[in-house]
């Protein structure tokens, strides 16, 4: 059986908020390394991979591998009943029909108990090889979100170019064009506010802004985001948490 306790409900609430507009139904795979998820969007253009590691739980017990087939919209309805600071306990049997969720406030005088019906989901998994990326950019997640939102008002696509000059996001649309260039600018005192660029080779790729804006809903998970790029392969965007991560992969647009 599974028994997993999070000190703060906000962790799972933020993860679900981050991915629910990309995927609807997905398996939460529970095993002795924690709770993992890999799911593609309906169009098979983007993929989300999530891992909440056992170290992030105040209590974690999972005797066998259990797949929890969850509709994320339904899960979000239940999670709305949890306050951010509540302790959350997830429980499921070995072949569960339902996931039990218990929310307890810090004063220990309120216990909320919910059951979420589970579904059988036959999920496709992709094998993602370890990749040496040509360019890796670490920057404040809020800044990346702002750039994606601003450019998405002008165009459907963004060209991302990483060179030794910096990383440039540019787009062209009906009303005009726009570009933002970030130069390497490490912040010694507050590393989460700096921008670092590791460049093995120049990279130039084009991506759909609709998806990038969607990924930025994970900005609440981390102050920083890591963007990894190589020519002719999908982009990797990672939001690292204290004990886990949410990663998004996005196939490029080609033939500009």
């Amino acid at each position: 059986m599974l028994e997993a306790r999070l000190e703060q409900s906000s962790v799972l609430k933020k993860v679900v908020d981050a991915i629910k507009d990309l995927v609807q139904d997905c398996n939460f795979d529970c095993n002795d390394s924690g709770i993992q998820l890999q799911a593609m969007d309906n169009s098979h253009v983007a993929l989300v991979a999530m891992h909440l590691k056992t170290e992030g739980f105040a209590l974690y017990r999972c005797d066998r591998n259990i797949a929890l087939g969850i509709n994320l919209v339904s899960l979000q309805k239940v999670l709305r009943a949890a306050q951010n600071e509540d302790v959350m306990t997830l429980k499921a049997e070995d072949s569960p029909d339902a996931l039990s969720l218990v929310f307890e406030n810090s004063e220990n005088d309120r216990i909320s108990e919910y059951d979420l019906k589970l579904m059988d989901i036959d999920q496709e998994h992709l094998g993602i090889p370890e990749t040496e990326y040509g360019a890796t950019v670490k920057m404040p997640s809020a800044e990346f979100q702002r750039i994606c939102r601003d450019l998405s008002l002008l165009s459907e696509s963004v060209a991302i170019e990483a060179t030794k000059e910096g990383i440039k996001f540019s787009c062209t649309g009906d009303i005009g064009k726009g570009a933002v260039t970030l130069r390497q600018n490490p912040n010694v005192e507050k590393p989460e506010l700096g921008t670092t660029i590791e460049l093995q080779e120049p990279v130039a790729l084009t991506f759909s802004l609709k998806y990038l804006v969607n990924f930025c809903k994970a900005s609440g998970l981390s102050n920083t985001v890591t963007i990894s790029l190589s020519n002719e392969v999908p982009l990797l965007i990672e939001y690292e948490m204290e004990h886990g991560y949410v990663r998004f992969y996005l196939a490029p647009k080609i033939g500009d």
């Binding site: 253009v45 993929l47 496709e124 094998g127 090889p129 696509s157 999908p234 033939g255």
Partner: peptide, 14 residues
């Protein structure tokens, strides 16, 4: 107009 590629062009189904 650039064409949106599929993830299956890059990664194999397990």
């Amino acid at each position: 107009t650039p064409i949106q590629n599929d993830l299956s062009e890059y990664y194999a189904l397990l």
